[in-house]
Amino acid sequence: MSHHTILRVVAKFLIPPIILYALYVQWHGDYGPGGGFQAGVIFAVAFILYALVFGLDALVRVFPTAVIRILFSLGVLIYAGTGFVAMFFGKNFLDYSYLGHDPVHAQEWGILLVEFGVGLTVATVMIAIFIAFASRIPSISDEEW
């Protein structure tokens, strides 16, 4: 799509607000609708849009597959780890009360942590699945569309 100037310019304009909105949905999930799942998907959409307009090779240069592989595992690790660490403090699995002096405040920290794990996993998994599909497709010439 090297000569689709309008698409390239519009995509460049859209990608930063999409990422910003994803971060808003991620960190504002305690107060409004949203959370890790939705934020992760929106975050992934920014990168998928980048790949659609600028090509898969450009995306893989920005986000190497080795990094993606580590990040989607790390997300699950953050979630499960938050639960396991609680057990070292003598609490039940996924009991967040060890995260602060005051149990109510600790809940907020726990929710923030596990939502971050969810968001990280969902975002990188969606990008990974997209790359897995798209890397098998020969780049479609403009006439075919």
Binding site: G29, D30, Y31, G32, P33, G35, G36, G83, F93, L94, Y96, P103, V104, H105, Q107, E108, G110, I111, V114, E115, V118
Partner: peptide
Amino acid sequence: VETGVPNIVTAVLASYRGY
């Protein structure tokens, strides 16, 4: 009272039903 999170859906999702 228990979580101080205004969005109950988030509290149920990430805390009460964290598992």
